[in-house]
Design a protein around this nucleic acid. Structure first.
Length: 183
DNA sequence: TGGCCGATATGCT
DNA sequence: GCATATCGGCCAA
C-alpha cells in the first residue's frame, strides 16, 4: 500500500527531498501524476531565497508548503518548500500522467501525451493548479503519496535548467529513461 | 514610476 | 537553432 507523504517529510535537507520526491504520486483535482523530474533550490545564487528576497520569505521560513511563482509573464511553476533549518524549495519539473488525461489534453490543447506535463509550466497548466494555493500546506489541496520505489541506479542528475547563476551545481534529478522528463 | 530580468514554451527558419 | 510573447517582482531614482 502506497504511503502518504505529509508536510513533515519536507523538513529534511532539500537535496534529499528533491531526490526522494521522484516516484511520488501527486493528486490534485481530477488529475494524478507521478513526479519524474525535480530541481533543488537552497540558499544558492539562483534560488528565489536570494533573487526574490520578499516573496522568497516562504523558502526561508516554511517547509511543506506550496510555492508558486510566475515567469515570463504567462507561465507559472510549482514548488514545495523544504528544509526546516534553512532556505529551500523543490521545483516540480515533470510528471508522468496517470489520471485525468482527457482534462490535461483539453487544458494543454494537445493530444500528445508526451507534451502534457513534461515541463514545470506545462504541468501547472495541465492540472490547472490554482495560484491561490501559494503558501498553503501540502496535503490539503495537493496530496502526495509514494507510488514507486525508485532505486539509486534509476536516478540521474545534472545541472539545473534555464538558470544563469550557479549553473555548475548538479541539483536536477530525474528518473532515468522516463519519457515524460523535460527538454 | 520606469526599466530590467527571468527556475518557460512555442512557433518559425 | 533562435526569436519572442508578456508581466510580476525588485530596485534605482
Amino acid at each position: 500500500m502506497a504511503s502518504k507523504i505529509t508536510s513533515g517529510f519536507f523538513a529534511q535537507d532539500t537535496l534529499k527531498v528533491a531526490r526522494e520526491l521522484l516516484g511520488v504520486e501527486m493528486a490534485y483535482g481530477d488529475c494524478r501524476g507521478v513526479i519524474v523530474e525535480t530541481e533543488a533550490y537552497c540558499g544558492d545564487p539562483a534560488s528565489h531565497a536570494v533573487t526574490r528576497p520578499n516573496t522568497g520569505v516562504l523558502l526561508r521560513e516554511t517547509f511543506g508548503c506550496i510555492y508558486i511563482y510566475s515567469i515570463y509573464g504567462i507561465h507559472r511553476c510549482l514548488n514545495f518548500t523544504s528544509d526546516e533549518s534553512g532556505p529551500g524549495a523543490v521545483l516540480i519539473r515533470a510528471l508522468e500522467p496517470l489520471r485525468g488525461i482527457e482534462s490535461m489534453m483539453a487544458r494543454r490543447g494537445t493530444e500528445r501525451l508526451r507534451n502534457l506535463t513534461s515541463g514545470p509550466a506545462k504541468l501547472v497548466q495541465a492540472l490547472a493548479v490554482d495560484p491561490a494555493l501559494h503558501g498553503q500546506e501540502i496535503g490539503r489541496s495537493i496530496r502526495l503519496r509514494r507510488l514507486w520505489e525508485v532505486k539509486e541506479k534509476d536516478v540521474a542528475w545534472g545541472p539545473r535548467i534555464g538558470i544563469s547563476k550557479a549553473q555548475e551545481l548538479p541539483w536536477r534529478f530525474w528518473v532515468k529513461g522516463n519519457k515524460h522528463v523535460s527538454v
